[in-house]
Design a protein around this nucleic acid. Structure first.
Length: 423
RNA sequence: GGAGAGGUGGCAGAGUGGUCGAAUGUACCUGACUCGAAAUCAGGCGUACUGUCAAAGGUACCGUGGGUUCGAAUCCCACCCUCUCCGCCA
């Protein structure tokens, strides 16, 4: 959520920044500011009425205390009118506040200065590319065939027991999953991220804090009995650790990581790119989360990008890094780098990580603030990234490291974790 | 699931209808003392909104939402959450 005060003071700058997302925010902003002006008028009137009522109430108390009962009763008469005014103004004020809030929820984050204007994924810029795309002198198999052949992931069994998008991992497939999780966590720890095991269900307040609610309600699995939500990413519990926090000093830097399964209903995304591991309702991911002083955000983002690069290098996968254009960025993001791994058999790029800075957008909703050097209370900056999401990494490993003899080679960095060299 | 206790400022913890945005302690900031530190002493110190060039000032906030009252942290109702004990159970 953008700060209203900023929209008020930097209206043109906000509109210009939002235009990079290929949207024209001007009508919404104008409506917002008009409502805001109305609200402030009402608020002042309401405050004056309340002040008057408070003053009289005190006087009445004083009268009774000093035995001037008649005077007190007289004053009581006056409050009747004030109370009517007060409740009328309150209704008006509440309605305006709600309307303002709803408009604010609709406005996405303003892109950071480095972000280029663009419409969709075709306008994303490749800022880095690494590794070589393997060329096979045999017919490369897609991962769903390899999985079936080697009996390492069973999609049909998942359908039987739960439903589509909930596969079973078996044998070496299961061990490879475990290896990847440990590898990612160890790498994150080595980079200074503290490891957390987070709850897999969160309450409503947390859903609102990180922006899943109310906007994307239908994307989360919801337990109505206890009103809890299955997390779509570890970002939700990890970031909500900081909800309603006021950090007392300007020197802070929080780096956390966590492995969790992620649950996504993926409502409305049927039919496209859902084959095999490409899109699941339950998948595993190691997430890195940072909370930073605004001065450190750019450096932190750079570090996170380098961290993810290191992971893909060690997994010996060909990948590229995209800086997303305004139109392709997520709602809350100020700048996003996507990591895509080339899938040799599917002959396409698969997104395996997304690293973003949110600046104050999330912190505003979370009420996550700190005391700066100038003693003023300011909003923190938040960042997060996947490091990494497992299924597509798994798919890419299988497809890119398959050999003519039918075996799949396990990258060196993983062998200590898996205990085997080939699948 | 049953019974009980409780939710107040960064933390701890008083406060049962007006003088309470709230004692006290602690933490923190400033100053004095000191070569310096500790200790001590004096002063300051919640959050949000509004207001303003900046202020002053004003309003709201004592788990949440209602209610009673001229006036609510305090009384009433509903809900949420936490803790303890019992039961069940990994």
């Amino acid at each position: 959520m953008l700060e209203l005060s900023r929209i008020r003071t930097d209206k043109e700058q906000v509109i210009a920044a939002l235009s990079k997302r290929n949207i024209n925010a001007e009508p919404t902003i104008n409506e917002l500011l008009s409502l805001d002006t109305q609200w402030r008028g009402i608020k002042q009137e309401l405050d004056r009425t309340l002040e008057e009522a408070n003053r009289i109430a005190k006087e009445i108390g004083q009268c009774y205390k000093e035995g001037r009962v008649g005077e007190g009763n007289e004053l009581k008469q006056q409050t009747t009118v004030l109370k009517q005014q007060e409740s009328a103004l309150k209704v008006e004020s509440d309605a305006l506040e709600t309307a303002i809030q709803q408009l604010l929820y609709q406005i996405p984050n303003t892109p950071f200065q480095d972000v280029v204007k663009g419409k969709d994924l075709n306008d994303n810029q490749v800022v880095f590319q690494s590794g070589t795309v393997p060329s096979f002198n045999f017919q490369a198999k897609p991962h769903w065939d390899l999985c079936k052949e080697k009996q390492i992931i069973d999609f049909e069994l998942g359908v039987k027991v739960t439903g589509a998008g909930f596969p079973f991992y078996r044998g070496k497939g299961s061990k490879l999953q475990r290896a990847l999780i440990s590898f990612f966590l160890d790498e994150a720890s080595a980079a200074g991220y503290e490891e957390y095991q987070a709850p897999l269900m969160v309450n409503e307040a947390s859903g609102i804090g990180t922006g899943q609610l109310p906007d994307k309600e239908g994307q989360m699995y919801h337990d109505a009995t206890d009103n809890l939500y299955l997390i779509p990413t570890a970002e939700v519990p990890l970031t909500n650790i900081f909800r309603d926090e006021l950090i007392q000093h300007p020197e802070f830097s929080f780096k956390l990581c966590g492995y969790t399964p992620c649950f996504r209903r993926e409502a409305g995304s049927y039919g496209k790119d859902v084959r095999g591991l490409n899109r699941l309702h339950q998948f595993d991911k190691v997430e890195i989360v940072r909370v930073e002083h605004p001065d450190n955000t750019s450096r932190a983002l750079e570090e996170m990008v380098e961290h993810v690069k290191g992971l893909l290098d060690k997994l010996e996968l060909p990948y590229r890094v995209l800086r997303l254009c305004g139109g392709d960025m997520g709602f809350a993001s100020a700048m996003t780098f996507d990591f895509e791994v080339y899938s040799a058999a599917q002959e396409k790029w698969l997104e395996v990580s997304s690293v973003s800075r949110f600046d104050t957008f999330q912190a505003n909703r979370l009420k996550l603030r700190f005391k700066d050097h100038d003693k003023k209370t300011k909003l923190c900056h938040t960042l997060n990234g996947s490091a990494l999401a497992l299924p597509r990494v798994m798919a890419a490993l299988l497809e890119n490291h398959q050999q003519a003899d039918g075996r799949v080679a396990v990258p060196n960095a993983l062998q200590a974790y898996t205990g085997f060299d080939y699948i």
